[in-house]
């Protein structure tokens, strides 16, 4: 099989590292060769963060470059647009419609672009927009945005729901297991 490339993007502190950890484990359990690449430290402090997840028969590079991603899982709208050039032709963006102003917008040096997802859609990008924050709150915590987005993403794969649920149970702390199970269910059926 060809290597499948998934980018998980968002704003530092949104919980994207947990999403990549969970996804990586699941794919290893499914028998694939897997590489997951992330960056810690300075860039995590409210900056734009990106994690690369690649799986297939044999994966070499831990990175995903322009025109290579099959999926972009974006925790924030502007970040989906920022990383869109990494998408391959026919690729899909699954995006949380939440907006978080970056510092240049806060200081007034720039404006938060409106209609940026429509622009991409008009150029043929497949976009699956979801209000993951509201769904996560419905599940019980705004912090479950990562699980909601993963659930939405799971629909595009043939990996059985039970395997996803097992991976969640093995990754999150037991006291949040029920919350995350519910977030997955709501996200999957949204």
């Amino acid at each position: 099989m060809d290597t499948v490339n998934i980018m998980i993007v968002g704003v530092g502190g949104q919980g994207s590292l947990l999403a990549s950890k969970l996804l990586g484990r699941l794919l290893v359990d499914e028998g694939y060769d897997v590489k997951v690449s992330e960056v810690h430290g300075m860039s995590q402090r409210g900056g734009s963060v990106v994690t690369y997840v690649r799986f297939g028969d044999r994966v070499y590079s831990p990175l995903i470059e322009e025109g290579e991603a099959d999926f972009i899982l974006s925790f924030e709208k502007l970040e989906a647009a920022r990383w869109a050039p990494c998408l391959k032709k026919g690729g899909r963006i699954i995006v949380n419609t939440q907006e978080i102003d970056p510092m240049p917008v806060i200081t007034g040096a720039a404006e938060y672009p409106s209609g940026i997802l429509e622009e991409l859609k008009n150029k043929g990008v497949l976009i699956d927009a979801v209000d993951a924050l509201s769904i996560a709150r419905e599940a019980g915590s705004a912090k479950a945005v990562n699980i909601v987005l993963l659930a939405r993403f799971a629909k595009y794969f043939s990996i059985p729901v039970e395997s996803w649920e097992t991976a969640i149970a093995n990754t999150v702390a037991p006291k949040f297991a029920e919350l995350n199970r519910k977030a997955f269910e709501l996200g999957y059926n949204a």
Partner: peptide, 14 residues
Amino acid sequence: TVSADTAAPARPPV
């Protein structure tokens, strides 16, 4: 590649 015409403002760490 494909990209939006509107440039995304930078998001530096804060």
